[in-house]
């Protein structure tokens, strides 16, 4: 059964959504082609608590990193194309503004990457771990319930 299916619902086949089945080395036989007509009704997705907030937090961190790096990079490339004379101004000895900006872009990239990873570890990873653990517990509980129901059906046959 798929982890997000409700107890009691039939398992849903998602094709090779997750690649190989981890526990089975031989995959199930191929599904027959879909019948003609309208597409099947989509399964009711179970809303995972906290996933929206996590998505927003990840998006915020990603946007910050991309914006800073892309803006710095675009500014340097634009200056190199539009104002080469400005970048050629010597600042310290033979070291000109262009070389200093190249070095600054490298430093900015390194610093933002370190900050991104640290903030991700602090703000996202613990919440992602919590959601994953809850999800795994729910999957385990669903599997146990299914086993118990199967056992009940076996005894009811007597």
């Amino acid at each position: 059964m798929h982890p997000t299916s409700h107890p009691g619902e039939p398992p849903y086949d998602y094709g090779d959504l997750s690649g190989w089945p981890p526990s089975a080395r031989l995959a199930p036989p191929p599904r027959p082609g879909p019948p003609p007509g309208p597409p099947p009704v989509p399964p009711q997705a179970t809303a995972t608590p906290g996933l929206d907030a996590l998505r927003r937090r990840v998006g915020r961190l990603d946007r910050a990193l991309i914006t800073v790096n892309a803006a710095s990079f675009a500014a340097l490339v634009l200056l190199a194309g539009a104002a080469p004379g400005l970048l050629a101004v010597d600042v310290v000895g033979q070291i000109n503004l262009g070389l200093l900006l190249c070095a600054a872009l490298g430093v900015v990239s390194l610093c933002t990457s370190i900050r991104y990873d640290r903030r991700y570890s602090r703000e996202v990873d613990p919440e992602a771990d919590r959601i994953r653990t809850r999800h795994e517990e729910r999957v385990a509980a669903t599997a146990t319930a299914a086993q118990e129901r199967a056992a009940g059906r076996r005894w009811s046959g007597w």
């Binding site: 982890p3 099947p40 989509p42 990840v58």
Partner: peptide, 14 residues
């Protein structure tokens, strides 16, 4: 329509 987008997102994020 047969893909559980919620499950995909859960996997990508966590």
């Amino acid at each position: 329509d047969r893909i559980d987008q919620e499950a995909v997102e859960l996997r990508v994020l966590t």
